[in-house]
Amino acid sequence: MNAQVQIQVTASPGTGYNFAYLDEGTKRMIRRAILKAIAIPGYQVPFAAREMPMPYGWGTGGVQVTAAILGSSDVLKVIDQGADDTTNAVSIRRFFTATAGIATTTRTAEATVIQTRHRIPEAPLAEGQVLVYQVPIPEPLRFLEPRETETRQLHALAEYGLMHVKLYEDIARHGHIATTYAYPVEVAGRYVMDPSPTPKFDNPKMDDCPALQLFGAGREKRIYAIPPYTRVRSLDFEDHPFRVQSFDRPCALCGAEDVYLDEVVLDDAGGRMFVCSDTDHCETRRADGHTGEAA
């Protein structure tokens, strides 16, 4: 009766937490929701979101999805508005480094899992990658119909007239569709979905994307997905077709055109410059020798 007992240490060394923070029961519950979300593209699967050691609005939904899918060989990239070096991105990256002991990167091409708040990287995504979105309000119809019971019926009946009325009212008031972010999309010809508050500039990147796209809303307790190579159509009208933002100047640091730019205020005398919102894309271009007017 002196059998040796080996205890496998699965937590990140020294933290006392389970691998990637969540307990295994919670991970299984989230994983089952992810599988149903993939099978029903664009449909919001309810899940029992946990409280996370960060406030709602800081990506608790995305963090739970990332924690549920992450394996020890994954390489994680986290971006906040396209940047790897802002508070939200840095703290989430540190959270998973501490609790899962996994490798992190800022290079889009090197990452296997990319958690994002409000942007899709400029570099094209590849088949082996998973893009995890942090979502504040997953229901695209919520500000048109506040009752969950009603929006659920509208999705069940594929009754999306309200959304077209909203876009039409944009045209009636402004002469064009003035929605610039969280621009509604139709996934695989069935569900209308909120792409999270990404600029509509990024909507075309969701269409026919080789990577799997997962969406997690922690406070609202919803998970949804776009499988790879899925048709994602931005809603529009024949006489007012969907159009993305365009910028009248290139990035001031790397000279990139056809990318999404952030405005940076330089002084209190009205000085400003426009730079790539995607910091990795900008750095990669500058390393390749591209320069803008301010560099």
């Binding site: 295994e24 991970k27 599988l35 992450l70 394996g71």
Partner: peptide
Amino acid sequence: FADPVHEGQAVFRAAMEALSR
């Protein structure tokens, strides 16, 4: 599973990839 955490994750990821593609 000898290692429920990582083997469970690997099997789930295979199922996730299988249903995604």
